[in-house]
């Protein structure tokens, strides 16, 4: 058996032992998400517009991640609506920025890997960069929106009469707790993975100026920042959606 298969089986077994049914469904959502990512690349390679593909695939990935991981219906619905709103706002930020910063495709550092390849493939690499940026933010957005929605839904369950203003204060306070640690997840997740590149920069004595304008470096840093912006926006937006839902439910009861 290949290494990937064995590691995958171990992860499945561990998730099932420790997480029970929730763990097994979470593993399933990972598999679906991988399938969706691969589908996204294939659709773009067939010539579908990258922004449209990321919008559609992003909507489905968020649904799998949120509804497969959260049992509380109110929390899951709120988290999903909020995550969709954040994703649309992010697309509106990412699209112009990618067209301005032009950190798409490959850089001179990639030359060795590109040997013998045809680069003129007729697919807009700026579009691909937009897709990469959007898809890489979705995990963090989903995680943050679930955490906040679940926390607020717990508060509503305990005090059904809680005021909208109080709920908003609570939401922001939960947000403060999670942004600090999520920041670490993103920082290490992105930069840990680029150790080799940083060793390259340092080993070849790149100046600070060349690093700050380097295509790959800029692409990585903007991706971390987009994720961070996404998580920050998720806090007030999830809280806002939850107050709307709460008000709506209170009205239905009357």
């Amino acid at each position: 058996m290949s290494t990937i298969t064995v590691l995958g089986l171990i992860l499945l077994i561990l998730m099932t032992i420790i997480g029970g049914k929730t763990g097994a469904t979470a593993f399933l959502s990972l598999i679906f998400n991988f399938g969706l990512l691969f589908l996204a690349v294939i659709l773009i390679s067939w010539g579908f517009p990258a922004v449209g593909v990321s919008l559609v695939i992003g909507t489905i990935i968020l649904a799998f991640t949120i509804f497969f991981g959260e049992d509380d219906a109110l929390a899951a619905k709120t988290a999903y609506i909020a995550a969709l709103i954040v994703m649309v706002i992010l697309i509106l930020i990412i699209f112009p920025v990618e067209n301005w910063i032009m950190a798409q495709g490959f850089s001179l550092e990639d030359s060795e890997d590109l040997e013998g390849m045809s680069l003129a493939i007729g697919v807009s690499f700026v579009g691909v960069a937009v897709t990469e940026a959007i898809l890489s933010t979705l995990g963090a957005i989903a995680e943050a929106s679930i955490a906040i929605a679940a926390g607020l839904s717990e508060i509503i369950a305990q005090q059904p009469q809680v005021s909208a203003k109080r709920l908003y204060v609570d939401g922001i306070s939960i947000g403060k707790q999670i942004i600090g640690t999520t920041f670490n997840t993103l920082f290490f997740g992105f930069f840990g993975g680029f150790l080799a590149l940083f060793i390259w920069f340092a080993g070849l004595h790149y100046s600070l100026g060349s690093v700050l304008n380097n295509k790959i470096f800029v692409a990585e840093v903007t991706m971390v920042l987009f994720s961070l912006i996404g998580v920050i926006l998720t806090v007030p937006i999830t809280t806002w959606v939850m107050t709307l839902q709460h008000r709506h439910q209170a009205k239905l009861k009357d």
């Binding site: 497969f68 989903a142 997740g189 991706m223």
Partner: peptide
Amino acid sequence: GHSIMGPLINVLFLIFMADTFAM
């Protein structure tokens, strides 16, 4: 832990995979 692990694994998974898109 049940409800945290799934979304968290997804965060890293999407970050690691999105980087490979262009190539």
